[in-house]
Amino acid sequence: MKKDKQYKLDIIPGIIIAIFAIFYMSKISGIRVFKSLGATPLTNHFIPWLWGGSMLALSLWLIIRGILKYRKLKALNALPEGESLFAALWEKREVIFSFIALALYVGFMDSIGFVITTCIYTFVQILILTPVNKWGKNFIPALITAIIAGFLLFYIFRVMLNVLLPVGIFGFGL
């Protein structure tokens, strides 16, 4: 019975996946087919159709299953109460801020450079994961960790191992 209450976890992903599958399949016709010497009878369209089609079928299965669960619950009059979207999002603020911080981090890494963005990101991410009432005590350790991480990792990977981490606005002689 517990599982049946999760009808939303069937319907919503089902719809998103169905839309995605349709979008994916709409792009298949634009793929250039290779027709000359040695072309295979199954073209490069076949597998995308196979996966896209299976995806659509499976998402429909999910949607239908969700609807059946919903009906069953409605008949029993046991629909769970909906919670407000805002409250749900607030509960997940740590995750949301983490993703925003990460997105900004990789987004600015190229122009500003690895060292500075890494220092800022590490610092911010530590604070995001620390309860607000403990920020004061963690401020300095977080700052030190962030700065060490930024410079040390740059040195190890860019200077010693030649990974092309973006150098950014400061040249560091590279």
């Binding site: 981090y105 590490t122 994961l129 350790p141 962030a146 991480a149 990792l153 990977f157 191992l161 990974v163």
Partner: peptide, 19 residues
């Protein structure tokens, strides 16, 4: 503490993705 470990792991993941 996980609030220190996790950010470092994430930075390393980023380096891994670039590398």
């Amino acid at each position: 503490p996980k609030n220190y470990l996790l950010p470092i792991v994430m930075v390393l993941c980023g380096i891994g993705a670039i590398g």
